[in-house]
Computed example of a mutant assay.
Amino acid sequence: MPLVTAGVVVLDCAEPEKLALFYKLLLEAEDTDATANLVEIRAADGFRMAFRRDMNATPPSWPRPENSLQAHLDFLVEDLDAAERRVVELGGRPLEAKDVPGPYEERMCSDPAGHSFTLRRGRQAAPKQG
């Protein structure tokens, strides 16, 4: 048994209820716990996220250098266009309109509170050419 195991990814934000709803709908997750200052969700695959109230939370400014990236999440998707449309429907926004160079197809987005994340094609037979 490992000494340390993965727990919960926690994002600080001013409105945890709203941010939890965004990720709950995006991941088709369910609520597992909620208090006045913390909401936790669990996706069908077991991935857990929590959203902690911090009225002084400052969203990352990536790709601008001030306040930088802080951290970001990667989500695996089968259809990049459909996943990006869903992010926008739920109040998130794309951060880059062009394809990112490299062997994987991915798109950068942010949630309604400004936390960045990547939508990455999860099942791909061969690396992207070019």
Rank of each mutant, 00 (worst) to 15 (best):
A57E: 07
L26T: 04
A29P: 10
L27Y: 03
N67I: 08
P16T: 02
A50L: 15
L21I: 12
D111T: 07
P127G: 10
Q124S: 11
L19C: 06
V100R: 01
V88N: 05
L119I: 03
T5H: 15
L38P: 05
R85C: 06
V77S: 01
L90A: 02
L90W: 01
P2C: 13
P2M: 15
E105L: 06
P60K: 02
R107I: 02
F47D: 06
A125P: 13
V9I: 12
E105T: 06
L76E: 14
F51P: 03
G46D: 08
D81H: 05
P65H: 14
N56D: 15
P16L: 00
G122Y: 09
H72Q: 11
E30D: 15
A44P: 12
E30S: 12
D111N: 08
D45K: 11
A57Q: 08
A36T: 11
A6P: 11
C13R: 09
M108C: 04
R48P: 05
G114N: 09
Y23R: 01
P101M: 00
L76Q: 13
T35P: 06
F47Q: 07
E28N: 15
K24A: 08
A34E: 07
H115R: 13
R123T: 14
E17N: 15
S68K: 09
R123V: 15
M108P: 05
V77H: 03
E105I: 06
V4F: 11
C13H: 10
Q129R: 02
P63Q: 01
L27S: 06
S68P: 10
D54N: 11
D74G: 04
T58P: 10
C13Y: 10
G102R: 02
Q129D: 06
L76M: 14
T5M: 14
A36C: 08
R121P: 01
M1K: 14
A83V: 01
G7A: 06
A6Y: 09
G122P: 06
F22E: 09
V77A: 02
L19F: 07
L73F: 13
E66H: 07
M49F: 11
G114C: 10
H115A: 12
L38A: 01
D31L: 12
A125S: 14
A97E: 08
V9H: 11
E40V: 07
G7Y: 08
T58E: 12
D45G: 08
S116I: 14
P59N: 07
G46A: 11
A113Q: 03
P16W: 04
T32M: 13
D45I: 08
K98E: 03
F75Y: 00
A36W: 10
R123N: 15
A43G: 07
E106S: 03
A43M: 06
R93H: 07
E28G: 13
Y23L: 00
L90P: 00
K98V: 04
T35V: 07
Q70W: 13
M1R: 13
V88K: 03
D79Q: 04
E78W: 01
P112C: 07
V9L: 12
D31S: 15
S68L: 09
E106I: 04
A57K: 07
T118L: 14
R120T: 02
G102L: 04
D12C: 04
L80T: 00
D79N: 02
